[in-house]
Amino acid sequence: MSRERKYAMIIDTRRCVGCSACVFACKTENQVPEGFCRDWVVSITKGSFPNLSLVNRSERCQHCEDAPCVSNCPTEASHYQGDGTVQIDRDLCTGCKACMAACPYDARYIHPDGFADKCSFCSHRIKAGLATTACTQVCPTSALKLVDLNSNDGQAEALLRGREVKIDKPHAGTKPKLLWLL
């Protein structure tokens, strides 16, 4: 491979209606056990009747460039995959939960089989050459897009152009890679 990929997700809150199809699609694609989820929707209403605003946000692991889960993992189970994603090697995981305590976004859970688990940006799909994750594929409003920030295809630029971009908890210093368009 000539060029290193750097996957990120761009989430258009103007498009998102908070339907949660992303959550269901992920649960089936990744066989997330009952009672857990790898992605979720947060709805934030501000103001008082009748002056209100509402934002829906589909959230998941931020695949931080400076990920505290990776630096706090004692066994290298949590690791950078080299394509901008953070992955968990289940063979190395002891279930010590240091990564969960370290994550400012509470993106992880302990799988009933014992290992820490979270969104993988559908790494298996990326490896199979698909351009979508389960959530970006299903999203009825096309609010979710998986992009390669190192690509020259212009997709990320086109989505970001002219839009106000927000990242979650920038002061955590984690350099997250979920980009919300307001």
Binding site: C19, S20, A21, F24, T28, E29, Q31, V138, P140, S142
Partner: peptide, 25 residues
């Protein structure tokens, strides 16, 4: 059956699906 996704060519789904549709199983 473990997953349902939207059919890409169908003009009503265009490859997308609502949450209910994903839950047929």
């Amino acid at each position: 059956l473990f997953k349902i996704s939207g059919h890409a060519d169908h003009p009503l789904s265009n490859g997308k699906l609502c949450p209910r549709g994903t839950g047929g199983h």
